[in-house]
Design a protein around this nucleic acid. Sequence first.
DNA 1: CTATTATTCAAGTGATATATTGAATACTAG
DNA 2: CTAGTATTCAATATATCACTTGAATAATAG
Lengths: 222, 222
Amino acid sequence: MSTNPKRDVFASLARVGTALSSPIRIEFLELLAQSERSVEQLAGLTGTTVANTSQHLQRLRQAGLIVGRKEGLYVFYRLAGDEVVALLSAMARVGEAYVADVERIVRLYFAQKDELEPVPAKEVLERARKSLVTVLDVRPPEEFAAGHVPGAINIPVQELEKRIKELPKRREVIAYCRGPYCLMSFEAVEKLRKKGWRARRLENGLPEWRAAGLPVVEEAES
Amino acid sequence: MSTNPKRDVFASLARVGTALSSPIRIEFLELLAQSERSVEQLAGLTGTTVANTSQHLQRLRQAGLIVGRKEGLYVFYRLAGDEVVALLSAMARVGEAYVADVERIVRLYFAQKDELEPVPAKEVLERARKSLVTVLDVRPPEEFAAGHVPGAINIPVQELEKRIKELPKRREVIAYCRGPYCLMSFEAVEKLRKKGWRARRLENGLPEWRAAGLPVVEEAES
DNA sequence: CTATTATTCAAGTGATATATTGAATACTAG
DNA sequence: CTAGTATTCAATATATCACTTGAATAATAG
């Protein structure tokens, strides 16, 4: 009597787990954590066929992780809610803490990870308000436009070296990107430090910032 | 250059997701969230063969979710850390919020779920210290022995009806069990209310209580 | 209505996961 | 060393999953 519905609950949870069991689907989720996107966009960004992308998105939707919105010809998908971001963060934390691979990979590509101590979100918000730090968003412009930390400057990581002069040198730079397992902010901090700037990473990325209820600026569409 | 390690990180996260993609493995995790257990115990509790149980446990271990400890003939498995409890909670929250099934099942068996408002952990601790409430642990005795809320009384839910007199009637009873998707505490509250007691559920269960850093009593072994 | 485009559906194939079975390994007791 | 037990390993049939292909839907423009 009491064990039957329990099994059903486990089955439901397992459906969520199954949705998270494919690297491509996790990549879709990370992209959708930035802003809503159409099927075609997601297919292009990940290099998979449209039909395949559509099928993956439907599995994610059946698991309750994303929702779709039809607008004209396009279907725009987005995360179902902040709980999904929390779930991804929890997975990343388990992965970092216990799966040797993740740490090994991060160390391999960013040997000085230990020196790149992240800054907690609340601290950044306070110090940004007092103009004590420069907040740097290293994501692509379209993601910046869909929402960013108030007062942040947007310089995609590829352009950082040639546009580095736009950042005041006397203030410390706090860089952020997509999330705890997005590596662009590591790269940015590395480059900034090489050129003599003081720089650190924001703990986590914009999705977590948003999920924590901190203010986000969204640019008005023209 | 920057997209290659990213794919690897997604693959690592997907391995965690794959580990969470089977109902039986989630059941094992929920049992292990209570206390460490041997392979044989887990097999008995879930009704699967020992060989099958062993294989599932190894997949969980490879994903970094559990760790094993050999003691004589037995191998005792336990969760790798509190992060795993957080991950399970995050999954349950997504499931409850967005997967219609979970909510439907809970409603089906506990129609008055809305009236069973849970009590936050901090509130319970305070009021238990002042003896304003009775804390009731409805899990089996062996799980109670492995760790419980300070001052809690242990009456497994099956025995609740015949032992209900052990609970003082003038104080409100706060019941808890294994976690947010464990249904025993719902059942307990239902029975208590029918008999005229005031009763509510503790928000979440013991694993979350422990993960939140709140005090836990472990009985000394003889 | 027709043509066009984004998305979804359906069928097929190769790969992967699951549960079962029987044997191998590791440890303890005597 | 031998017997007995807990766990793991290996081999197998069945089921499920991932990706491709080609066609079907649905919305828009002309």
